[in-house]
Simulated scan of single mutants.
Amino acid sequence: MTHNAIQRLLLKRFALAAGTYALALVLLWLAFFTGHYDQPLTNVAVGSALVVISQAALFAMFYSGCNLKCADPSLTEVQVLMGLGWQTWLIANLDEARGSFLVFYVLILLFGLFHLSRRAFLRCTLMVFFSFSAITLWEGYHFQLTDPALAALQVCVLFIVLVWLELYARYVQASRQRMRQRRFALQAHQDTLRGMMRQLEDLVATDELTGLFNRRHFLRLASRELNTMDADVVHGLALIDLDHFKRINDIHGHAAGDQVLQAFAAVASACLREGDVLARYGGEEFVVLLPDCNPERLTSCCERLRIAFTDVELIGLKVGNLSLSAGMTLLELGDDLDDALQRADQALYRAKRDGRNRCAAAWENVDA
């Protein structure tokens, strides 16, 4: 998730907590007007104002992004401890309605159930129990409890609820840890699977011997280029055949032929620019697609390939003079790829018929 997305999520959580504070304040004033809150109006107003100020300060931290500088950007433990402090202050000033407001302890702890660590959650539960017990003992010591048996029962009930929350929090956190580990394991499996899929795609698209694209992948790429080309753009297409390749295989063996194919692939890849497409079309035949090309550039590129290939020297192998023949054509908008390949093939046939080791263009006059 991005920082903005995380911050929006934290603001939503804060809004939920602020809404809980608003509900508590409504109940506080309701308890005051019904006579269950034993404090003057001034104390109630000041306490309510301090609660609002504390929430405004937290909102300012979230809104300004200062919370992102903290170890815990959610400020969960801070909010929980602050909420428990205000709740304890409220409980200390209630009389018969004290038991009804104990539920807010549970709400505050549930706010941190999924985000606090085990130790932090235990600290918060201990703070709740000892705070409420201290209030009860203080009032009991000063004989201020109207019903000591009810107060003792409230302490026992709170203790049982806190123990249950602590055990449930451990269960939830252990479950989240297991789910996190499974998610990481699943992510690792997905990454492995994606890597294998990429390898399979490479195997499907690549000629194993030369490392170039194979015929199927070239036809897919060329068709896509034709479908997306602009009206004023022309592509160059050339079929290249290595001369006397069968004789090399017959005299020197197929291993030597494979070495010649690999040498051409290396030379041709070095001569082409980024964006040009080179593929093994089949056997000793290769195909080149030059996007955004013109006749002069296509001819220059094929001649450069031809000359570079004639200068190749194979290590540990003497196969005589290497050469190639090329048939060139141009692709325009609306052109059919099969027709263009047929034109290039006819030009290639003419280059071989005229003596090989040359480049012939489909736009040239055949009778010239």
Rank of each mutant, 00 (worst) to 15 (best):
D147P: 00
P148F: 03
P148T: 03
P148M: 00
P148Q: 01
A149C: 08
A151L: 02
A151T: 04
A152F: 10
A152G: 07
A152P: 03
L153R: 13
Q154T: 05
Q154P: 03
V155S: 06
C156Y: 11
C156M: 09
V157Y: 13
V157T: 11
V157S: 10
L158A: 08
L158S: 10
F159E: 02
F159C: 03
V161W: 08
L162W: 04
L162V: 08
W164A: 14
W164I: 07
E166T: 14
L167F: 13
L167I: 14
L167T: 01
A169D: 07
R170L: 07
Y171S: 09
Y171P: 01
V172Q: 12
Q173Y: 12
A174R: 14
S175K: 15
Q177I: 02
M179S: 07
M179N: 11
M179F: 10
R180P: 06
R180S: 14
R180Y: 09
R180E: 08
R183F: 13
F184Q: 13
A185T: 07
L186V: 07
L186G: 07
Q187K: 15
A188Q: 14
A188R: 15
A188C: 13
A188E: 06
H189A: 15
Q190T: 07
Q190L: 14
D191F: 09
R194D: 12
R194S: 15
G195S: 12
G195I: 04
M196Y: 15
E201S: 08
L203Y: 02
V204I: 12
A205N: 15
T206Q: 00
D207H: 11
D207E: 14
D207A: 13
G211E: 01
G211M: 00
F213P: 01
N214A: 06
N214K: 07
R216P: 05
R216N: 10
F218I: 02
F218E: 01
L219N: 13
R220Y: 10
R220M: 14
L221T: 03
A222W: 00
A222H: 00
S223A: 13
R224L: 02
E225W: 11
L226K: 11
L226Y: 14
L226M: 15
N227T: 04
N227G: 08
T228K: 13
D230L: 13
A231W: 05
A231P: 02
D232L: 05
D232N: 09
V233S: 10
V234N: 05
V234K: 04
V234Y: 15
H235L: 01
G236C: 10
G236I: 00
L237D: 01
A238F: 08
A238N: 09
A238P: 02
I240W: 00
I240V: 15
D241V: 03
D241R: 10
L242F: 03
D243Y: 12
D243S: 05
D243W: 09
H244G: 07
H244E: 05
R247A: 15
R247Q: 15
I248M: 02
D250P: 13
I251G: 04
G253V: 01
H254D: 09
A255E: 10
A256P: 14
A256T: 07
A256F: 10
A256V: 10
G257D: 09
